[in-house]
Design a protein around this nucleic acid. Structure first.
Lengths: 205, 205
DNA sequence: TTCGGATGTTAATAATATTTACATTTAATG
DNA sequence: CATTAAATGTAAATATTATTAACATCCGAA
């Protein structure tokens, strides 16, 4: 009875609802789908979701987990396509992040928004945020490759993440080139990352 | 009749509603005040706001303008407290931005969120976003002071802004130290800014 | 003075989230 | 195998808000 849809009980409604909600978010580009539509899409009545989620916020948190895992997966793909410890790998990671922010804006903001569950999230860092660890490893490998063992790679990775996050966030909201239409987000990010690595690790520029 | 409250007509309801909404956002730390409460606070009925704003979104856009002007004002204050073209001035600007993001989280996110009015915003850049221009001038002065005339200060200011924006956004959502509790946002930002300036302009570190 | 438009009011209307009361199914227990 | 409590669904309320409709008042121009 783990995959029934034949009768009264769904079998895997919680996940089905998360997927349904994600599809609606994907379709509309916003988080304001209705609970009723998500329920219908999952093949149940409007009240059924409340057996699995206290409220819409909780469902959104479920979708968020899915999105975070997806981004982590993309990070894994990206790293596997480039030489270990290479600059290009780190830059590619930035481009991937930028693409994600642009193409899946609603998921991107949902992912980082505070929804009053910080403590809960802290506990799930390891299982959810593999993506960041991928970056940390890339940075570490880069430092190693450049013979620098003094660098705190977690710290440096956080600096690079926040640079990418800032550009991605602004770009997703069409603000990065608000003052100068000629600015190219990827070029800007590449240059920022190069400068940061050159300044902290040496070489790279 | 520009400031009446005596009789039937309010006199300046549009602005009063923006202020009322801003107070509610300040009070609750969220954007989900009700139109009715904003109206009551402004001393009018629940339907009155619709004579001035098509919907809640439009009222929020009004509040956003106010917030952006406020941040611009803070930028002006900050720059006036430090030597022209100094590194400390630029760092102070970053701290101010970080403080704003933390203390006025709801306004901060409202400010940068896309609310489907990009074109409209582009037209108001000059009148609204004096704050960014303050940063551009600081960066320009910094470059001048370091005898570097090759730098595109608009470009460099955008890089610095996006770094600060990334850190501020993550910090406001309590995510910047998700992986390493020991990270201090201001220190991280200071170091990033120094590295960027040193890498692009020279000196500074 | 008088009339039209702007701005307010109160009373609907509508869309949604969420709860309630009841139904069905599952799974453990004797 | 029969029984029953817990889990999971359903349909029919409720409640909260945004928003609109229909009507009232006021201000400024002709």
């Amino acid at each position: 009875m783990s995959k029934a849809r034949c009768s009264y009980h769904h079998g895997d409604l919680r996940n089905a609802l998360i997927v349904a909600a994600a599809e609606l978010i994907e379709r509309d580009g916003t988080l304001d789908f209705t609970m009723a539509e998500a329920a219908t899409r999952a093949g149940v009545s409007a009240a059924a979701p409340y057996r699995h989620f206290a409220d819409k916020e909780e469902l959104l948190r479920g979708v968020r987990e899915l999105a975070i895992l997806g981004l982590g997966h993309a990070a894994g793909e990206t790293v596997s396509e480039h030489p270990n410890g290479s600059l290009e790998g780190i830059l590619a990671m930035g481009h991937m992040y930028l693409d994600y922010a642009r193409d899946k804006h609603a998921f991107f903001s949902l992912m980082w928004e505070d929804r009053g569950d910080i403590e809960e999230r802290r506990e799930k860092v390891a299982e959810e945020h593999g993506g960041f660890m991928v970056l940390v490893n890339m940075v570490q490998a880069y430092c190693d490759a450049h013979g620098n063992t003094q660098v705190n790679s977690l710290h440096l990775a956080t600096q690079i993440w926040s640079m990418g996050h800032g550009i991605a966030t602004l770009e997703a909201n069409q603000l990065i080139n608000l003052f100068d239409r000629s600015i190219e987000p990827e070029a800007l990010l590449d240059q920022s990352v190069r400068t940061m690595l050159a300044g902290v690790v040496g070489a790279a520029a």
